[in-house]
Amino acid sequence: MVGKGLLEGMRVTLKAFFSKKETLQYPEIKLTMPERFRGGELELDNQKCIACGLCARACPNHVIELTTGTDEQKKRHLTSYIYHSGLCLYCNYCIEACPTNAICWDKNYENARFFKDELDVDCLAIAKQKSATIVDAAPADQPNAEQEDALNKEGER
């Protein structure tokens, strides 16, 4: 019968009309990103970084710009680490290339910016700032420092 398909379609939409909504109200409810989520900005751990530059070399799009220097003990260290997130392909190659797991994604997917130069992230400055706050917070946190000492001693043994 002509029109049967039309009525069937109307039944589908009517059923959808009364069924549960599938959307989330975004700013209030946020999805948790999966463990392997690639997105956001690079997070650098400058303690772990050995300044080998493999990440920059693995990158297909020259997203990571780093300079290195040597300190008194002839040990190489980072002097700057700029991540141009506007160029990033989010391919994960840099993280896979890192021998010491010094970089990871911060998994913040809300990375819209108002200005283009805000897309260039100075990861080293952020990392230094972060470790500075941790060092500041550490003395107040006595038990933790003790634990760390204990761990260090164990490590020495």
């Binding site: 959808a16 009364f18 909504k21 599938e22 959307t23």
Partner: peptide, 13 residues
């Protein structure tokens, strides 16, 4: 609202 409900969205809210 009707269109949203038929598409299982919430519509303007």
């Amino acid at each position: 609202k009707v269109s949203a409900f038929m598409q299982r969205r919430s519509g303007p809210n």
